[in-house]
C-alpha cells in the first residue's frame, strides 16, 4: 500500500471537486474492495475522499411509486428494508447471496456497483493486465479463465463484473444518480452504467473522474415472482460462476439478467421476450455471439440450466 492523504468530505459537491481536481484521488465509502486492492497496490490512489458523512443513507419513496436508495445505504440495510423485501425481492435475494454478513454490514450501495473485477491476473501485479495497467496486455487470455467472461469481453480483457446486487438492479431497470464537481446531476440507466471493455478495460463504468454517486432509484414495483439463482462451487462466500436474476409474471413473461458472465450484468431485452418459450430460447438469444474460453464454456449451458431452474420454480 502506498502512502495516501485522507479527508472526510462535508458535502457532495466538495467531495466531487476534491476528486475531480486530483486524478490520483478516489472516493472511499465502505472500503471493502478498495482497501484490499490498495494493500496489494492494484489500486494506488494518493488521496482518499471519505464520503461517509454525506448523509446518503436513506431509502425513500419516489413520486413515481418507486424507491430512492441513498448511495451509502449498506448492503445489509438495503436487503433488510421492508419495502425492498416486499416489492423488490430479487434485490434482497441478490444482496444476501453475496459476500458475508460482515462485509454486507460495511459495503455501500454505490461501492457495490463500483467493485472491481475478481480476475486473478488483475490481482497479481506481476502479471500483464490492461485493466490494471493499460497497454500491458492480458495474461488472462490463454491463462486460467474458468471464472472469467463469456460475452461482451474483448481482445484486451476477458474479466467480468463480479457483483450480485447490480444484476438484480439490472432486471429492475434501476437508475444511478450522480453529481459532479460543478453540481451537475446525471441519471444513468443501470444498463449503460457498466462499460463493455472494448479497448479501454481500465474504465469499468461511464463515470467521469470525480463524479459521485448519490443514489440509485428503482422504478415502481414489477409484481411477479422474484428469483436470484446463484451458482457457485461452494455454498456461500464465493463469486458467481453464473447467476440469474429474474422477475417472472404469472403469464410466463418477465425479465432476466445474468451475472458472472460479462463486464456488466448481462441482460438482453430481446431475450426477455422469449421467456414464455423457455430457458433455452432465452439464453440462445441472450448469449448470441458469446466467446467463451475452453475453461469457461460450461457457463453457457449452465446459464440455461440455472434459468430453467428458475422457470420451473416460477411455475411451481
Amino acid at each position: 500500500m502506498r502512502a495516501f492523504t485522507y479527508e472526510r468530505a462535508k458535502d457532495a459537491s466538495a467531495a466531487a471537486r476534491a476528486v475531480t481536481a486530483n486524478p490520483a484521488a478516489k472516493f472511499i465509502a465502505g472500503g471493502t474492495n478498495l482497501l484490499d486492492l490498495m494493500k496489494i497496490e492494484v489500486e494506488t490512489p494518493t488521496h482518499l475522499v471519505d464520503v461517509q458523512d454525506l448523509g446518503f443513507d436513506k431509502i425513500e419513496a419516489t413520486r413515481e411509486g418507486g424507491l430512492r436508495i441513498g448511495a451509502l445505504v449498506t448492503n445489509t440495510n438495503l436487503a433488510a428494508e421492508e419495502r425492498v423485501r416486499r416489492d423488490y425481492g430479487v434485490l434482497t435475494r441478490a444482496i444476501v447471496a453475496g459476500a458475508s454478513g460482515q462485509l454486507r454490514n460495511k459495503a455501500s450501495t454505490a461501492g457495490n456497483l463500483l467493485q472491481r473485477t475478481r480476475c486473478p491476473y488483475f490481482y497479481d501485479t506481476n502479471m500483464a493486465c490492461n485493466k490494471r495497467k493499460p497497454g500491458s496486455g492480458c495474461a488472462a487470455i490463454g491463462g486460467y479463465s474458468r471464472q472469467l467472461g463469456v460475452i461482451g469481453v474483448s481482445d484486451s480483457c476477458i474479466a467480468t463484473f463480479p457483483g450480485d446486487m447490480a444484476v438484480a438492479m439490472r432486471v429492475l431497470d434501476a437508475v444511478v444518480e450522480t453529481v459532479d464537481a460543478t453540481g451537475q446531476r446525471r441519471s444513468i440507466p443501470i444498463a449503460d452504467f457498466h462499460r463493455l471493455w472494448g479497448d479501454k478495460p481500465e474504465q469499468d463504468t461511464v463515470l467521469k473522474q470525480g463524479e459521485l454517486i448519490t443514489a440509485v432509484t428503482l422504478p415502481k414495483p414489477l409484481g411477479g415472482k422474484h428469483f436470484y439463482e446463484k451458482v457457485r462451487d461452494r455454498a456461500s462466500y464465493a463469486y458467481a460462476l453464473v447467476s440469474v436474476a429474474a422477475v417472472i409474471q404469472p403469464d410466463g413473461t418477465g425479465r432476466v439478467a445474468f451475472g458472472g458472465v460479462a463486464p456488466r450484468p448481462w441482460r438482453v431485452e430481446a431475450a426477455d421476450a422469449l421467456l414464455p418459450r423457455g430457458a433455452a430460447a432465452v439464453t440462445a438469444r441472450a448469449f448470441q455471439g458469446a466467446t467463451p474460453t475452453k475453461d469457461n464454456a460450461f457457463k453457457l449451458p449452465l446459464a440455461t440450466r440455472a434459468l430453467a431452474s428458475v422457470l420451473a420454480e416460477a411455475k411451481a
Binding site: 475478481r118 486473478p120 471464472q147 462451487d233 461452494r234 455454498a235 456461500s236 462466500y237 464465493a238
Partner: peptide, 11 residues
Amino acid sequence: LASYEVPVHAD
C-alpha cells in the same frame, strides 16, 4: 482465499 476455495460453514 477468495479464489482458492475451502469449505465454509454452509457447505
